[in-house]
């Protein structure tokens, strides 16, 4: 934390921001959200959950329904159009201007602000250097690869020194290896600049890796706000649990301090319940011999993944689980295995 610069971004407050489109569809129920300066917040959810609408309201591309307010550093910007808000925006399609070279793209925001040509090109070159793409300055956009375009789009958004940077699924159009690489790069950049960033994605891995906080959205409403750890280990409801990471679920009942299910029973804390379900993450369970635990399953599928094996288990009632095992564990499809669960890492609901 020693070399973290003072936050340069704006604090953003959304209050009562809903969005109903002219045809009557409600894209967003009125929501409140506080974003602290310099924070990276990720809006996560499936398509149609309202995350992009929220981003566009913050950007000024959509206006919230009557009563909704957007504040930047306490100042009401609800009525300001996007061109007056000083936000940087990165689009899924990159939206680079095809009729301009890379450096002209990056300098464009300064050009429309009336910065003299010499100064704006110097400042654009600086940003290109920071993104380590200065060698591309004179290229045309159609001569760039996807990853290069993404860097140019980011450079263009940052060149105007915005109060907040808005990223709308910026990595979705890239292949997996490049995505991981750029994700790490964006993460480093946002932290170094200490700029307020709002990042929209449907990819939970991206959200967990990038976000200081994650806002999980569903059907135009917030399902949960929390740190990546909160979201992953203490999901607020079934939807969050199943959307973020893989969740296993055993159905059964609690009787006399034990959770009883088709596969057996294990000790749990809590009162008796006629119906209960026990949820846990694949990596929190440990496989053992068939007789060494109260739970017993049949191995249905084994996928070798290099560092780990992913194992699908079946219970007597037809329920299925996915767990992980060490790469060298000997697992045979059709064999019975036991399962040990850590009481601190499962949730009984």
């Amino acid at each position: 934390m020693t070399d973290t610069p003072a936050p340069t971004g704006a604090a953003i407050t959304l209050s009562g921001c809903g969005k109903t489109f002219p045809d009557g569809t409600c894209a967003l129920e009125p929501l409140d959200l506080q974003i602290t300066p310099g924070e990276t917040i990720v809006l996560l959810g499936p398509s149609g959950c309202g995350k992009t609408t929220t981003l566009r309201i913050i950007a000024g591309l959509e206006s919230p329904d009557a009563g909704g307010k957007v504040l930047f550093d306490g100042q009401d910007v609800t009525q300001l159009p996007i061109e007056k808000r000083n936000v940087g925006m990165v689009f899924q399609s990159y939206a680079l201007f095809p009729n301009m070279s890379v450096i002209e793209n990056v300098a464009y925001g300064l050009r429309v602000r009336g910065v003299a040509k010499k100064e704006r090109l110097a400042r654009a070159a600086e940003v290109l250097e920071m993104m380590r793409i200065d060698q591309l300055a004179e290229r045309r956009i159609d001569q760039l690869s996807g990853g290069q375009r993404q860097r140019v789009a980011l450079a263009r958004a940052l060149a105007v020194r915005p109060r907040v940077i808005l990223l709308d699924e910026p990595l979705t159009a890239l292949d997996a290896a490049l995505r991981d690489h750029l994700r790490a790069e964006i993460d480093g950049l946002l932290r170094r600049l200490a700029i307020t960033a709002i990042y929209v994605t449907h990819d939970q891995a991206e959200a967990l890796a990038l976000g200081d906080r994650i806002v999980v959205m569903r059907h135009g409403a917030i399902a949960q706000i929390g740190s990546p750890r909160d979201i992953y280990f203490r999901p607020a409801d079934d939807f969050v649990a199943s959307f973020v990471g893989v969740t296993n679920r055993l159905e059964g009942a609690v009787r006399g301090g034990r959770f009883e299910t088709a596969a057996g029973s294990i000790a749990v804390a809590g009162p008796d319940r006629a119906t209960a379900s026990l949820a846990f993450r694949p990596e929190t369970a440990v496989l053992c011999g068939a007789g060494d635990s109260g739970l017993r399953f049949r191995v249905e599928q084994v996928h070798f993944q290099g560092a780990r094996q992913r194992v699908q288990l079946g219970a007597a009632d037809g329920g299925r689980l996915v767990v992980e095992a060490a790469a060298d564990a000997v697992l045979v499809v059709g064999d019975d295995v036991g399962l040990v669960l850590d009481p601190a890492r499962f949730v009984l609901v």
């Binding site: 061109e83 201007f97 301009m100």
Partner: peptide
């Protein structure tokens, strides 16, 4: 024309006239 081109120009501070000159007219050139 990709509508996000126009939105990108506006996010960078371009006025309507500048968007027309720099994005729309070159785009439909």
């Amino acid at each position: 024309l990709d509508p996000s081109l126009e939105e990108a120009a506006r996010s960078l501070g371009a006025s309507r006239a500048q968007v027309l000159r720099d994005v729309i007219l070159p785009g439909i050139g």
